[in-house]
Design a protein around this nucleic acid. Structure first.
Lengths: 332, 332
DNA sequence: TTCCATTTTGCAACCGGTTGCAAAATGGAA
DNA sequence: TTCCATTTTGCAACCGGTTGCAAAATGGAA
């Protein structure tokens, strides 16, 4: 058993309160006392039990990190950045894998049992109500990559997906494509709905351009590939705005199979700019989502909610930009 | 503030002990009492504070999941399987991102502060001493993907990397390559050292086959690409056994740049069989590491150590096998 | 109804910490 | 040296649970 406060107090010949105070910042302890206690503590190898202290302080420094997207390579970056960022601030990520579950009740119960100080929901597919359920349960929550709402009920940090849709549309128009299509992620994903809406909105300005759309079953390689294989059976569009990068790569593989060339015969633009999109043998033209800013900002927000749980909800949207690589034909 | 045991006890008009008992399996409570308490509990929306109870039970059901490999796509599968598996058993993963840190002291202190019941170290690059430091600190630990030692001091679950090296060598020999090479991961990674040793051992049986080796800086796309670009400046080998899949893909991209063809001009065999290796536009011949078995077994082991912390250490090794795809030339 | 073995319940101490309050110690000024 | 404002310290109660023990309740047999 590891040594406790009491052990240290006895060895140092002081009260338990004194030991507790030397280990809490800002508490009143004389230098002499501190030295005595620290000596005893290092001799015993003592370090305070964070869970025990959480009982009285009401802070566990545990942050629930909830996601349903463990198979998308973009989440390597997301997890890396989140865990690093939280660690740097002395917080600890408690991971919750939602897999197929979309009812928040279980996650909420579990995270409440562990008294997490806050929750970050990292998902572009869950509806706003998911994060809201945490708020209603009294748990500070930030929805990263969530849907932007003009009157958010919960903090949202992410991108303007509709604007990304418009951006993709403008990019295709600019490059002279006249027969374009949206190959979305799952139709139930808020990010796909919004990107679709923006895409169609922008293209409505160009009645001479033909537009079609379809949806893949998931943001995944296989779903993108499958959907593109189906599309290739008929006469495909000249260019596709795909749901995200991994889906784009699936589509690219289907196109390669068919013997058509990218960008010669078909253009593809993705979204995310995950690391892999820049790999030379992928070389995907895509819209960059500023992941690291989104995550920094999410952490900053959740940290500030620890101080002020009733902080007025806000939406923080970061601009995206087109990263030109090799899957759209050049302008003119 | 969420309701506590006391609130439920008051509302139900019973003792706190009675409430506690209805929420702990195997405790003695009459059906009548149970009903009364459950009614009050659901009315108040009570669920027990896991951290508070951990103080007396000595169990937090928290498992530290320590890794340093957040950028390798194989970890998508690893995280997904670990989090699911732990959740299914009522355990919670507390994630620790080691990034560049290789001194266990900080992680140990932190995980002890949170009184984790056990730790899984998931890494094929950390030396055995890392996991051992946890054991020495009295924390049950399993090293997944760790180095096999004939007299392990710590539970290791993984593969026989030396045997994988031999397997790769045999595969290259079988396909008639006469000028082969090892393109390892970082020279400091135990997995690379072992694969290298096995590879050389097997090839030592064939003096007529020329063998060379070099090491990439990391198990990563960029490192693999960079190393292969360098190798291509001189006359490259006929086939390479690469450190792992992601490194292999980097190497493939370098080869594609050079205008050489795979498997026509150069053969590549990887290791891991991560999801991406099977993507049709990657189509990497590789050695499959049975990730899901390794993780199931790791979880099973750590769970059993919760009952019996002094369980005699063992090494569990799972056989690997060659998955033939398109990056080695056919036999004859 | 009485008796007794068995089951259920509550009391009170405990897990490892924190913190308000009052008492003790400190230290500078007169 | 005395006095007093300020700093430091310990006591004891508390955070939200669990659990050993003894007392109370239960229920079946006689």
């Amino acid at each position: 058993m590891p040594p406790t406060l009491k052990d240290v107090a006895e060895r140092a010949g002081v009260s338990r309160a004194a030991v507790s105070r030397t280990f809490t910042d800002g508490a009143s302890v004389s230098l002499k006392m501190r030295r005595k206690v620290e000596k005893a503590a290092t001799e015993l190898g003592y370090s305070p039990n964070a869970l025990a202290s959480s009982l009285t302080t009401g802070r566990t420094k545990l942050i629930g990190l909830v996601s349903n997207n463990f198979h998308n390579p973009i989440f390597l970056e997301v997890f890396d950045l989140f865990t690093r960022g939280l660690q740097e601030r002395g917080l600890r990520p408690l991971l919750v894998n939602l897999s197929d579950e979309t009812d928040p009740a279980n996650s909420i119960r579990m995270l409440r049992q562990y008294s997490v100080d806050g929750v970050v929901v990292a998902s572009s597919t869950l509806p706003p109500g998911f994060a809201k359920a945490f708020r209603d349960a009294g748990v500070p929550v930030v929805h990263s990559f969530g849907r932007y709402a003009s009157s958010p009920e919960v903090h949202v940090v992410g991108i303007d997906n509709a604007e990304c849709g418009r951006m993709a549309a403008r990019e295709l128009v600019r490059r002279g494509y006249r027969d374009v299509a949206f190959l979305g992620g799952p139709e139930s994903a808020t990010s796909t709905q919004d990107r679709f809406r923006g895409f169609m909105e922008e293209l409505a300005k160009y009645p001479e351009i033909s537009v079609r759309h379809s949806f893949a079953e998931a943001y995944s390689f296989n779903a993108g590939r499958k959907e593109m294989l189906a599309l290739l059976k008929d006469r495909p569009a000249e260019a596709y705005f795909c749901g995200d990068d991994v889906l784009s790569i699936g589509a690219l593989s289907a196109i390669a199979d068919s013997g058509l060339k990218v960008p010669g015969d078909i253009g593809i633009i993705g979204l995310n700019d995950m690391e892999m999109a820049g790999w030379e043998n992928i070389n995907l033209t895509t819209i960059r989502q500023p992941i690291s800013q989104i995550i920094d900002s999410s952490i900053e927000l959740i940290v500030s909610m620890l101080e002020n749980p009733d902080r007025y909800p806000e939406a923080r949207l970061f601009p995206c930009k087109v990263i030109e690589r090799g899957t759209l034909r050049p302008v003119d």
